[in-house]
Design a protein around this nucleic acid. Structure first.
Lengths: 190, 190, 190, 190
DNA sequence: TATGAATGAGCCTTCATTCAT
DNA sequence: CATGAATGAAGGCTCATTCAT
């Protein structure tokens, strides 16, 4: 039967369906048919909203990153916390993001061109946001290491990898981060 | 025209062609036809040497990892250097491997099942080898941080990422490593 | 150019095309491309209606057997005829079936797995139906030979073979059948 | 290693290998590679002895039929037996042939064009040979039915089918044959 | 908006056949 | 005689994309 919906809603539904399948099976192994089935519509309609698979991918990824970014932003910009709390909070959120959807990685690792989109995009946003924190720390004297942004970058990527390899104890990460950023012991509480 | 070659040579050529395309475009987007074309032979011949695409992939990956491992082993097991030199040497080699073939990552990141094979295999081997060094360092008192292996793991993955993002100055890496492992300044020379 | 048709019609057309080629060239030597060409559509569309060649074969065979069965049933179950008329009628129909589509045999003999499906299915149905007649004849005293069902089976198969070898005079068959079943001369009229 | 053999021997070996595989898997599903492997030689050599697969098939089938014929001939032409003994003997042999190598049927049923070759060839030879017997019987007054050759043909084909469907009791066949050829009870002894 | 039949290109794989050695 | 590397033409199947309704 023929169900008409608000275009915006439909589009979001398709994006959601695509995102779900992309994460689960990878982009290459997800066909437009699959997406249509998952969204409970016909292939034709998918093409009505997205010119091509490529466009669908692009938007799905944007969607993805956007959601993550949003969450990060909200928390990190809170002005009520001190440096260490913010860092802690941010890390907690980061782990949440990683664990809740190991899918970020799934999506990323699974797909060629997309990898850059997601990883870079996520890292850029993480760096942008966390970077401000870092700068703040540097200015406050809370952070004294050199190349703080690069170190942050290494941490962000490396931690995600470690995590996906099974190391998931927050305490360990806290210690490692303190150590790596040369922060006082116990300053990070995840 | 018909050019016969020593099977060993042919096989290597095919493996090389496959490796090249896999790195460049990803495995899924490289067809057996592409491989044949790149190797300047017919599809049929590819199948003469490899029962299936899967087998070709497997061997190409093995090939890949093997070469990297070999190089790492050779250098790291040299008994003539002290801790810092070995670490330096190893890092130099690591960068060489990464830079020469960003392909490791390319290959790895691009492909689902393959990702594990390569990354795990490479990381395991890097950790195995470097791990010994680290342990040595711990025993010697050269290394005093906690979770040294995890930190190493983070560094290995994170550095590769940073590198592939365009940061390629060895000095920076040296500094970061010294800092992260809490080694004396200037101890690492890449 | 693009011609849309009622799916049911299309499906039947494909089945018909497949049936035709299967009979003519054998299943193995008929490719999905051939079927598509014969049906004047693209391969893709064949796969739109049938998941695989196997499924197409299965349905084509079912189609085939079904039609034959249907006709046999209708006539043999008529209650208005006596034993000999029924037998005559049935034989007439049998020859019709054979001659109209020598294909039954063609299809059957040509294909390994399929052979059983068709031949067994057709013979079973023929035996089931004719068997009732035979039993009736035995009870009426119209048939007095031993192993009547086996004899029937031999006749059914053997007649088809003879027929396909060029012997097609109904009178000859009538005589042979009378003789073989030990019926009065002239009782069978094809 | 390179083993040279008498060409005639080699050819026979290849024919034997082909025959074996053709019976076991069917002609279409037997590749020239398979034949070469079975004969423990290379594909090239198969083509040295047989211009094409078709030629190999042809000769393999001839080979096949020839062997069967030979056996039939030998027995049936013995002058020491009376009509009924010869018929009995011939039937015994026929069953032997069928049972020993249901392969005849296998080969036959499985392959399109080949079916005719084998079946016709075998039937022709059976008819030729048995036909003489039948004629003898007719002349002697031992056989009084009409269309004796056609009946024979039906029996030959029908019996093989019945046999392959599981009915394999010689007594039943003897009875059926006596009955069908209108011979005295007990005259056939298989 | 929405449907779903239809297309066409491309993919992995198999195999009969050839040919330089 | 014999080898086995090399070719080329299909074959079964999938899927992104289009289009008439």
């Amino acid at each position: 039967m023929r169900i008409s919906k608000d275009p915006q809603v439909r589009k979001r539904e398709i994006l959601a369906a695509a995102g779900k399948l992309f994460e689960k099976y990878g982009i290459d192994k997800t066909s437009m048919s699959d997406v249509a089935k998952e969204a409970d519509i016909t292939k034709g309609l998918v093409y009505y909203y997205f010119k091509s698979k490529e466009e669908l991918i692009e938007e799905a990824v944007k969607n993805f990153v956007f959601e993550s970014e949003l969450a990060l932003k909200n928390i990190i910009q809170a002005d009520t916390m001190n440096f260490y709390s913010k860092l802690s909070e941010m890390l907690r959120l980061y782990f949440l993001t990683i664990s809740k959807n190991l899918s970020i990685n799934a999506l990323a690792k699974t797909n060629p061109g997309v990898y850059e989109l997601v990883k870079r995009s996520l890292c850029r946003s993480a760096l942008d946001l966390a970077g401000v924190l870092i700068d703040e720390g540097v200015m406050n004297g809370n952070i004294s290491i050199s190349h703080p942004r690069h170190v942050l970058s290494i941490l962000i990527g490396g931690i995600a990898d470690l995590y996906s390899q099974g190391v998931q104890d927050p305490k360990i990460f806290a210690e490692i981060i303190e150590q790596t950023l040369h922060l006082p012991k116990g300053s990070i509480k995840i």
